[in-house]
């Protein structure tokens, strides 16, 4: 039996009268890339924000790396957060800091007694691995969209997470840069042995990076399985139209 690193059961979340998640059940297995697909506003980002408790669920049970989120105090939650990397849709780089300072910031605040040499080594190695060693002294405003995404991923990797969340990693990027980002997601899994949830509505990204797909429709997962299982014989009109649009049928 495969080991679950994340278990979600009966998850509900609403904003005012808008019910975004209506009884979501999902598992993320160790070492897999799970792609969560859905239309804009279907609650994909809300789901991963609940998983790091940036938002609180109305109801439901969530277990991450064996820890029940509802039973954690803030200190324990922060310990858990250190094992989770979150790559934001708009990269969320600190715009008053250079790339170096962006990468150092989570490291120096969470890992004590690191020498200057160790910090520099970690930062330079990560920038090398995302292919941007020359940006180290640049400000975020001087970077392109694709570069910002890569630096955003590098910043989360500096704490060696076990789980990665990617929120719309290819949104707003040109097709060539999308390929680079998709390759980076696969490279991160290989190098850092992470389990990942990739939130996207880009089916190419889903097909290239995902082991399993989960399609969120009206606050519930309508289909979960491999790309072929979910899309090629889809009968649900929502899933079928999603596929047809992405592949221009």
């Amino acid at each position: 039996m495969r080991e679950s690193v994340i278990e979600i059961r009966n998850l509900y979340k609403s904003f005012g009268d808008n019910d975004v998640l209506r009884g979501v059940d999902l598992d993320l297995y160790k070492g897999e890339n799970l792609v969560v697909l859905g239309k804009s506003g279907s609650g994909k980002s809300v789901l991963i924000k609940i998983l790091v408790q940036l938002l609180k669920q109305d109801e439901g049970y969530i277990k991450i790396l064996g820890k029940d989120l509802s039973k954690l105090n803030l200190r324990e939650l922060n310990q858990l957060r250190l094992k989770i990397g979150f790559a934001f849709q708009a990269s969320a780089l600190y715009d008053s800091m250079t790339v170096r300072e962006n990468l150092e910031f989570p490291l120096t605040r969470n890992v004590k007694n690191l020498s200057r040499k160790e910090i520099d080594y970690k930062v330079e190695r990560l920038l090398d691995s995302v292919g941007l060693p020359n940006t180290i002294n640049q400000m975020p405003s001087e970077l392109s969209g694709g570069q910002k995404k890569r630096i955003g991923v590098a910043r989360t990797l500096i704490l060696n997470p076990e789980i990665m969340f990617y929120d719309e990693p290819t949104a707003g990027l040109d097709p060539i840069t999308c390929i680079d980002i998709n390759n980076l997601i696969n490279q991160v899994r290989e190098e850092y042995k992470t389990s990942s949830i990739v939130i996207t509505h880009d089916l190419t990204c889903a097909k290239v990076t995902g082991d399993r797909m989960a399609v969120l429709v009206k606050g519930q997962f309508k289909a979960v399985g491999s790309f072929e299982d979910v899309f090629e014989n889809a009968s649900d009109p929502n899933i079928k139209s999603f596929y047809d649009y992405n592949f221009i049928k």
Binding site: K49, V52, L54, N78, Q79, R81, L82, I84, F86, F88, Q89, A90, A92, L93, Y94, D95, F105, P106, R109, N110, R155, T156, L159
Partner: peptide
Amino acid sequence: GSMKVTEQIDAMEVSAI
């Protein structure tokens, strides 16, 4: 406000800062 809408504050929070 700008840090909030560009998710920089959220990024700090998920980094346990």
